[in-house]
Measured scan of single mutants.
Amino acid sequence: GATAVSEWTEYKTADGKTYYYNNRTDESTWEKPQELK
């Protein structure tokens, strides 16, 4: 099967917290998305 390329990108805020942003859905989350686990 084809490997899905994750749409999630990991970013850090100014105070060093990590969050994740999805370019396709324009969604952001503090929790690590399922695709990255």
Rank of each mutant, 00 (worst) to 15 (best):
A14G: 08
L36W: 10
Y21N: 03
T29L: 06
G16K: 01
K17N: 08
A2P: 13
Y20K: 00
G16F: 01
D15Q: 06
W30M: 10
E35M: 05
T9W: 08
K37G: 15
Y19T: 02
A14H: 10
L36R: 01
A4H: 14
N23K: 11
Y11M: 15
S28V: 15
L36F: 11
E10F: 02
W8P: 01
A4K: 05
E35H: 07
A2I: 12
E27Y: 04
A4Y: 09
T29S: 12
V5Y: 12
N22H: 02
S6N: 11
A4E: 12
E27I: 06
T25L: 05
T9V: 15
T18R: 03
E35D: 12
E31T: 10
A14Q: 10
T3A: 13
G16W: 00
N22W: 00
P33N: 02
T25P: 01
K17H: 08
E27W: 03
N22I: 01
E31M: 06
Y19N: 03
Q34A: 15
E7T: 06
W30D: 10
E35W: 05
A2G: 14
E7V: 06
T3E: 12
D15H: 04
E10L: 05
W30V: 08
K17Q: 10
T3K: 02
D15T: 06
Y11W: 07
Q34T: 14
T25Y: 03
G1E: 13
Y11I: 14
A4V: 13
Y11L: 15
S28G: 11
Y19I: 09
R24E: 11
E7S: 06
E10A: 09
G16M: 00
T18K: 06
E35T: 07
T29I: 07
T18G: 03
L36C: 05
Y21W: 06
T3N: 14
K17S: 08
S6E: 11
K32R: 10
W8N: 00
T9E: 11
E35L: 06
N22D: 04
K12G: 03
T9K: 11
W30Y: 11
P33L: 02
P33I: 02
E35G: 08
E35Y: 06
T13G: 10
G1F: 14
A2L: 13
E35K: 03
Y21M: 04
K12M: 11
T29E: 04
A4W: 12
G1L: 14
Y21A: 03
Y19M: 08
